[in-house]
Design a protein around this nucleic acid. Structure first.
Lengths: 109, 109
DNA sequence: GCTATGATTCGACGGACGTCAAAGAGTTAT
DNA sequence: ATAACTCTTTGACGTCCGTCGAATCATAGC
């Protein structure tokens, strides 16, 4: 009843894909919305922190998941998303903290 | 006699630009060639570690410098490049280490 | 001056990216 | 069933990126 969407194994997570995913300010914004909360976050709630259309958000969730940064669990017609914090700490120690802790630049127009 | 090419101030270094710069495997390879050596490295020597044409390397040096990752010093017709390690540690603590320390993925074909 | 050398700039090409509106797929509720 | 709801997929559009060959610039040395 609660499917987990396919995601890369720890070993197949690459630095290139992770950095490319995190290089986008919208995706970093989404990641922070998850990172601050420990545990799964309702997909729609995290999406509120960002000012793009629903299809675009959906696209970004997919990029993050396929990069190995998040886990998506489908529960009925809602989905909850969480950061793969432990996996990432194993694969690339300190990276998530170094990227998400600093204050971001003001969203460039 | 030894000009230093223009580069962003510490405060104007943005996470987006830094991550975008580091997301490219060739640029990460160049960065490692500098990062392992403490101190300035001859531009041509660092470029040997990478398999792209000279114009492309030059392009990557510029991207790295404009992102605030490196300092380029022109000395006659040679240039030496170094990582702005201290500046980056102030701006984004732990980031450089987290990105450059791990073994990279095998250069994807 | 003239030539050789080290590196950049210009112009072009193919491919990837971020974005959205419209349509679709799956789920809950009436 | 039928409607409402949540999210995704498709297709398109404009933009940016990585790459190279050819041309250019700047310095060193003869």
């Amino acid at each position: 009843m609660a499917r987990t969407l396919p995601q890369p194994t720890i070993d197949s997570i690459t630095m290139t894909t992770v950095l490319a995913a995190l290089a986008d300010p919208v995706r970093r914004s989404l990641m922070r919305a998850l990172y601050l909360n420990a545990g799964p976050v309702d997909c729609a709630i995290a999406a509120e922190t960002v000012e793009v259309s629903a299809p675009t958000v959906s696209h970004h969730w997919r990029v993050l998941r396929e990069a190995g940064l998040t886990t998506t669990v489908v529960n009925g017609r809602r989905r909850t998303i969480s950061v793969r914090e432990d996996d990432l700490e194993i694969r690339f120690p300190g990276l998530l903290k170094a990227v998400l802790d600093p204050d971001d630049e003001p969203a460039q127009a």
